[in-house]
Design a protein around this nucleic acid. Structure first.
Length: 618
DNA sequence: GCCGTTTTCGGCCCGACTGTTTTCAGTCG
């Protein structure tokens, strides 16, 4: 875990413990806000603390003098005294209870103070013996809800990776489409923003037709894969179901594929929300988030004397008694997101950027064109893949089959990059086999035209940073992707030296999945990214964004840091199966989350430009 | 605990829903 992520976790914990201890809620949320700002910060925040001190920290939005001191304390001691004291004063089990849906800080504090609850077991005890009913605001219905939440919470909680989540959403949309006709319908939330994991899936449908609305609701709750309708949602405007993820792949035989029995396996909550057509833009903006982006947008509206909610952008008339849409006030903008952004002096902000990380100022209409961000990379810009495996190592496609599939998808170049000898389990090639393989790749060029097949290798970066083949052999390759595969628990300093050595190697073009992380499975290396991106820029090495949803490595914050440093990046599918090309969209979304401009992604370049760039190292 | 061309003190995003209440507190998204 990076220092930023760890520090953010500590501050978030401080926020939660403050709430539990009845501290001022604005003080608690200030800590949580700072945690999110730090987590999204592209550079190493501890380095900022050490090198530039308190004033530089206080320039970050949401960080004032007190929080700057805490960051400095953390960067110096690796801990924060305030957190230690709060932990000592609060039973650890209360944090666990606060995870249960329906139990917020106020209720948990009351249970602790009045009911002597300190963990899940003691909560269960006072439910069972009935004493919970004697506590304030604890009626029979409230207790029933807590009981149900406790039971359900055991199997929920886990977030879902982007790939399986997108597959569920696509399934839902495909099932509803025939019923809703051409009514606007889309998914929102962190899935639309392309985050690497999502908590639940929000599907929005806009219709003014009650018949369509009822039919969609009915089809939704009877869809294949639905294992239960979540209580609540009296009206048909919001329905929540639990749905089987039912997604398996070579990565997930251990933890995501259902064991025997049809109703088993991981589930995800899917919400269907039905709203009037006229509110669709405001609603999808609202449900897409992020929360921080929404808050910033509302503040921007207030600055301009307007009110923004999920029904539209309204003129503010200072009647605080009732929401504007309920008083029949006509919205200034509501049917499309673009109209709302424009009415607030902004260009349309792509969903991937909506994290309140500078996007509002960057997309302001009055920003001079010179300082406006360049066009972001998009899926249709990608014309090449530079990281793919064949049957020579652990892929399932022959060289020609791989090239044929790449051509079918509109690429002008495909690089064959099988594993090197140290990746024994993946069938890594000995130097002799690689020489023969290069010959086979050259021969395959005669069997298919309209696409360039490059001879390459995904070469292991060994634990000391040396590469898995001699320079003579590497020089015979058109493209070298150097990747770490083993020793992924090295400390940060060792990992930095290791990867730096690979970047400085004159025959390396691309640093493949630089940290080796697996989403929700393995943290991978945490090298000093500032050092790596500076070296990558200097040595003209492209940093890879591995598009597989299990990797998404580099991650969004690292990409932003690389972009700021002036690096070029590669978005590669790491193809083993033909379907792996479909993961490209996740790589592109992640790249966009890191603000990657089209021209800085080498996979968007035309063939002459890309091939010239590769040859510069030969 | 942060923040400021209407404030250095007194604010701090908005609305729906639920359950416990006689007017509202808490939670969620």
């Amino acid at each position: 875990m990076s220092d930023n992520a760890h520090l953010a976790e500590q501050l978030d914990l401080i926020s939660k413990l403050l709430e539990l201890n009845g501290a001022d809620s604005f003080r608690a949320s200030a800590n949580a806000r700072a945690a999110r700002a730090i987590e999204a910060w592209p550079a190493d925040i501890c380095a900022v603390a050490r090198d530039r001190g308190k004033p530089a920290l206080m320039e970050i939005e949401g960080i004032g003098p007190k929080l700057a001191d805490k960051i400095i304390e953390y960067s110096r001691d690796g801990r924060i005294k305030e957190l230690d004291e709060l932990r000592a004063a609060t039973p650890a089990g209360l944090l666990d209870i606060m995870q249960v849906p329906g139990l917020g800080p106020k209720t948990v504090r009351m249970l602790w103070q009045e009911g002597k609850v300190v963990d899940r077991a003691s909560l269960q005890r006072i439910i069972d013996d009935g004493t919970i009913l004697t506590l304030p605001r604890m009626g029979a219905k409230a207790v029933e809800k807590i009981k149900a939440s406790l039971a359900l919470h055991v199997e929920a909680a886990q977030r879902l990776r982007l790939g399986p989540a997108a597959a569920v959403a696509d399934r839902v949309l495909a099932a509803l489409r025939p019923i809703v006709g051409d009514s606007p319908m889309a998914f929102a939330g962190s899935l639309r923003r392309g985050k690497d994991t999502v908590g639940d899936i929000d599907v929005l449908l806009a219709t003014d037709n009650a018949t369509i609305s009822r039919a969609a609701h009915e089809a939704f709750i009877t869809m294949k894969g639905v294992t239960g309708v979540v209580a609540g949602g009296s009206a048909e405007t919001r329905t929540s179901v639990q749905m089987l993820v039912g997604f398996s792949s070579r990565w997930d035989e251990s933890d995501d594929s259902p064991p025997a029995g049809e109703q088993a396996g991981p589930r995800v909550q899917v919400d269907l929300r039905i709203m009037p057509k006229a509110s669709f833009g405001a609603a999808i903006m609202y449900f897409t988030g992020s929360k921080e982006h929404n808050v910033a947008m509302r503040l921007r509206a207030l600055d301009r004397g307007l009110t923004l909610n999920e029904y539209g952008l309204f003129p503010e008339d200072n009647s605080t008694t009732e929401a504007p849409h309920k008083r029949g006030i006509a919205p200034i903008a509501s049917d499309t997101e673009e109209a709302i952004y424009n009415a607030l002096g902004l260009r349309f902000i792509p969903p991937e950027l909506r994290e309140n990380a500078g996007e509002l100022s960057a997309f302001a209409l009055d920003t001079p064109p010179a300082s406006a961000p360049a066009a972001l990379v998009s899926l249709s810009d990608i014309r090449a893949d530079l990281h793919a495996h064949t049957t020579a190592s652990d892929g399932v496609l022959s060289i020609v089959a791989l090239a044929t599939e790449a051509k079918r998808r509109g690429f002008h170049t495909i690089a064959v990059t099988d594993h090197s000898k140290s990746s024994v389990i993946a069938g890594g090639l000995s130097p002799e086999r690689l020489r023969a393989h290069i010959g086979a790749i050259h021969a395959a060029r005669g069997e298919i035209d309209g696409i360039t097949i490059l001879a390459g290798s995904e070469v292991d970066i060994l634990s000391d940073g040396s590469l898995d083949y001699d320079d003579d052999l590497l020089a015979a390759l058109d493209v070298v992707v150097a990747s770490p595969h083993a020793a992924l628990t090295q400390d940060s300093a060792t990992a930095t030296k290791r990867l730096l050595r690979a970047i400085e190697h004159p025959l390396v073009h691309i640093l493949g999945h630089p940290t080796g992380r697996l989403v929700l499975r393995r943290p991978g290396l945490s090298p000093d990214m500032a050092t790596l991106v500076a070296a990558a820029k200097q040595h003209a090495v492209a940093l890879e964004i591995n598009a597989h949803w299990m990797r998404l490595d580099l991650r969004d914050t690292h990409i932003r840091q690389s972009v700021d440093a002036g690096c070029v990046l590669a978005i590669n599918c790491d193809v083993h199966h033909p379907e792996d090309f479909d993961n490209l969209k996740f790589g592109v979304q992640t790249a966009r989350r890191g603000w990657l401009p089209r021209e800085r992604c080498i996979n968007t370049w035309d063939a002459p430009k890309l091939h010239t760039w590769l040859k510069a190292k030969r």
